[in-house]
Amino acid sequence: MEDLAYYNGKITRLSEMMVPFNDRSHFFGDGVYDASVARNGIIFKLEDHIERFFNSMALIDIQPDFTKDELRELLQDLCQKLKTGDLFVYFQVSRGTAVRNHSYTQTIKPNLAIYMIPWTGDFSGGHRLKLMTVPDHRFEFCHIKTLNLLPNVLASQSATAQGLDEVVYHREQRVTECAHSNISILTNGVFQTAPLDHWILPGIARKYLLLASQSLGFGISEKPFTIEEMLAADEIIVSSSGALCAPVSEIDGRAVGGRDSERLQQLQTKIYQDFFKETDID
């Protein structure tokens, strides 16, 4: 099996999976998700992703009928069914299946969906990204990994149409995050990233970049920064589960970063070593 889909206990190929029409994710995007990558059948930072997944469910009042341990075991078992190398691992829960109604009953049973496909990551650190800035018009649930991603989709498509890699959201000049990544800066030896409030997702890679920076003796700061401060930074770093520490070379057609390659290299080496160590087979 080259890919895999799971829905409430049923396992098929991705192209063969059928989902009930009345799943509330269809009508309302009423659910949450999380995702990571796997190497050698080991899902990277799985505990962190499961913890965030359960936190997202709690924040929108979804009551799961499975435990963290049961989800962990299920994901690990599904990984073993694929022999295609590295994997992208996605899991989501919707509130459940019911006739379309904005309100819902407390007894509704959540629907758990998972898919896994081959993944090829580039952890060489050599490719620098090109970004564009856009006003952040998303709702105020950015700290929840919700299925409601239409603003992100439209912004990402606009960037793709212009041959760019990502967008940078801002609210009245304050940089928040990217469409599907966190964004941080290195300035004068200080790794700075936005605080964990309702404007950004608590990224797992963001968390470990902070820890890596601290262990390397860098200064660390969790406070907002502006577009102007970002453009003037020594290095600009985009981070996600699939791109742990990706540097930036251009924003809105302006050359940026590239002024602290030594610290950037140290940080990339540290974070990539962590990935390979955690996913190696003893």
Rank of each mutant, 00 (worst) to 15 (best):
Phe218Gln: 01
Leu59His: 13
Leu211Lys: 12
Thr120Val: 12
Glu172Phe: 13
Val32Leu: 04
Thr187Cys: 07
Ala155Arg: 04
Gln265Lys: 15
Thr133Pro: 01
Ala179Tyr: 01
Val89Lys: 01
Gln76Trp: 11
Leu75His: 07
Phe54Cys: 06
Thr84Cys: 11
Ser249Thr: 02
Lys277Gly: 09
Tyr208Leu: 08
Glu51Phe: 12
Asp23Glu: 09
His198Met: 14
Tyr115Glu: 04
Ser25Leu: 11
Ile144His: 04
Ser94Tyr: 08
Ile117Ser: 11
Asp252Ser: 10
Lys10Val: 12
Leu231Glu: 09
Glu222Cys: 08
Asp274Asn: 08
Arg138Ser: 04
Phe123Ala: 07
Asp34Tyr: 10
Ile281Arg: 06
Ile62Asp: 08
Asn40Phe: 02
Phe139Ala: 11
Ala179Gly: 10
Met17Gly: 05
His198Ala: 15
Glu16Phe: 03
Gln106Pro: 03
Cys79Gln: 11
Leu112Ile: 03
Tyr90Cys: 10
Asp86Trp: 08
Leu74Cys: 06
His127Asp: 10
Phe276Glu: 05
His127Tyr: 11
Asp122Pro: 13
Arg52Gln: 09
Gln192Cys: 08
Gln162Ala: 14
Phe139Glu: 06
Ile11Asp: 00
Ser215Leu: 07
Lys45Ile: 03
Trp199Val: 13
Thr193Val: 07
Ser239Ile: 00
Asp30Gly: 06
Asp3Met: 05
Thr12Arg: 10
Glu228Gln: 13
Glu47Leu: 09
Phe21Leu: 15
Asp136Cys: 07
Glu140Val: 14
Ala212Leu: 00
Phe66Ser: 00
Glu2Thr: 12
Thr160Lys: 15
Thr193Lys: 11
Lys109Met: 05
Arg39Thr: 06
Pro135Tyr: 01
Asp65His: 15
Ser249Arg: 14
Arg39Lys: 14
Gly85Trp: 00
Met132Trp: 00
Val167Tyr: 05
Tyr272Ile: 08
Arg39Val: 08
Leu210Pro: 03
Leu147Asn: 10
Asp234Pro: 05
Tyr115Trp: 09
Arg254Ala: 14
Pro224Gln: 00
Leu150Glu: 07
Gln266Phe: 05
Val37Gly: 03
Ile50Phe: 02
Leu196Trp: 09
Phe275Pro: 07
Tyr169His: 10
Phe28His: 00
Ala35Met: 13
Leu150Phe: 12
Met57Gln: 12
Gln106Arg: 14
Phe27Asp: 06
Glu73Met: 15
Met17Asp: 12
Tyr115His: 14
Gly126Met: 07
Ser213Gln: 04
Lys45Glu: 13
Leu244Pro: 05
Thr269Gly: 08
Thr226Leu: 05
Ser221Met: 12
Asp77Pro: 06
Ala5Asn: 04
Arg138Leu: 02
Leu209Gln: 04
Tyr104His: 11
Leu129Tyr: 09
Tyr115Ile: 01
